[in-house]
Simulated scan of single mutants.
Amino acid sequence: MTFFKNLYKDYQESKYSTYEGFLEWFLKRKLNFLGKIIFAYLLWTIWIVFFLHPHWFIFFFYGVIVLSIMVIFLEWWNDRKKGR
């Protein structure tokens, strides 16, 4: 867990602008050439799997919707507890 905290802290301290996202920062500054190639192959593999099994893509979006609703509820719950 400390690895991810240190990575996030490094991201906060060394990002170029406020508009630079974590993934962009990670690809530009933390991955070497081989890491970028592996990341590209990983994305290609995910695309092939979703292309060959489109019903998994639908289940993936169901999961995204459920997680989004959970995050919205948790943020609402935390704001409610803080008295905002």
Score class of each variant (00 low, 15 high):
residue 1 M to W: 03
residue 1 M to H: 04
residue 2 T to I: 08
residue 2 T to Y: 03
residue 2 T to F: 04
residue 4 F to K: 13
residue 4 F to S: 09
residue 4 F to L: 14
residue 4 F to T: 15
residue 5 K to W: 07
residue 5 K to Q: 14
residue 6 N to Q: 15
residue 7 L to R: 10
residue 8 Y to R: 14
residue 9 K to C: 09
residue 10 D to Q: 09
residue 11 Y to V: 13
residue 13 E to R: 13
residue 13 E to V: 10
residue 14 S to N: 15
residue 15 K to A: 06
residue 16 Y to P: 00
residue 16 Y to I: 00
residue 17 S to H: 04
residue 18 T to K: 02
residue 18 T to P: 00
residue 18 T to R: 01
residue 18 T to I: 01
residue 19 Y to F: 11
residue 21 G to L: 13
residue 22 F to K: 08
residue 22 F to C: 11
residue 23 L to R: 13
residue 23 L to E: 11
residue 24 E to P: 08
residue 24 E to C: 12
residue 25 W to N: 04
residue 26 F to G: 11
residue 26 F to L: 14
residue 27 L to C: 10
residue 28 K to D: 10
residue 28 K to A: 13
residue 28 K to P: 04
residue 29 R to K: 05
residue 29 R to A: 04
residue 29 R to I: 02
residue 30 K to E: 08
residue 30 K to P: 03
residue 30 K to A: 04
residue 31 L to E: 05
residue 32 N to G: 09
residue 32 N to F: 08
residue 33 F to Q: 05
residue 33 F to G: 04
residue 34 L to R: 12
residue 34 L to G: 05
residue 35 G to D: 02
residue 36 K to P: 02
residue 36 K to V: 02
residue 37 I to R: 05
residue 37 I to K: 06
residue 38 I to M: 03
residue 38 I to G: 01
residue 39 F to Y: 06
residue 39 F to N: 02
residue 40 A to T: 07
residue 40 A to D: 05
residue 41 Y to R: 09
residue 41 Y to N: 08
residue 41 Y to M: 11
residue 42 L to D: 03
residue 42 L to S: 11
residue 42 L to A: 07
residue 42 L to E: 06
residue 43 L to E: 00
residue 43 L to N: 05
residue 43 L to C: 13
residue 43 L to M: 09
residue 44 W to Y: 10
residue 44 W to I: 07
residue 46 I to F: 05
residue 46 I to G: 06
residue 47 W to V: 06
residue 47 W to F: 05
residue 47 W to G: 03
residue 48 I to S: 01
residue 49 V to Y: 01
residue 50 F to S: 03
residue 50 F to A: 13
residue 50 F to W: 02
residue 51 F to R: 09
residue 51 F to Y: 09
residue 52 L to E: 12
residue 53 H to Q: 12
residue 53 H to Y: 15
residue 54 P to R: 12
residue 54 P to W: 03
residue 55 H to E: 14
residue 56 W to K: 06
residue 56 W to G: 03
residue 57 F to P: 03
residue 57 F to Q: 14
residue 57 F to N: 09
residue 58 I to F: 15
residue 58 I to M: 05
residue 58 I to C: 02
residue 58 I to N: 06
residue 59 F to G: 12
residue 60 F to P: 01
residue 60 F to K: 08
residue 62 Y to K: 12
residue 62 Y to Q: 12
residue 63 G to R: 11
residue 64 V to C: 12
residue 64 V to N: 04
residue 65 I to N: 01
residue 65 I to D: 01
residue 65 I to F: 07
residue 65 I to H: 02
residue 66 V to C: 03
residue 66 V to D: 01
residue 66 V to H: 06
residue 66 V to A: 15
residue 66 V to K: 01
residue 67 L to M: 12
residue 67 L to D: 08
residue 67 L to V: 05
residue 67 L to I: 13
residue 70 M to E: 13
residue 70 M to H: 04
residue 70 M to W: 02
residue 71 V to Y: 07
residue 71 V to G: 00
residue 71 V to P: 00
residue 71 V to W: 01
residue 73 F to I: 06
residue 73 F to M: 00
residue 74 L to C: 00
residue 75 E to R: 11
residue 75 E to I: 06
residue 75 E to D: 01
residue 76 W to H: 04
residue 76 W to K: 06
residue 76 W to R: 10
residue 77 W to I: 00
residue 77 W to K: 12
residue 78 N to A: 08
residue 78 N to I: 14
residue 79 D to T: 02
residue 79 D to A: 14
residue 81 K to S: 13
residue 81 K to Q: 15
residue 82 K to R: 14
residue 83 G to Q: 12
residue 83 G to R: 06
residue 84 R to P: 00
residue 84 R to I: 12
residue 84 R to D: 03
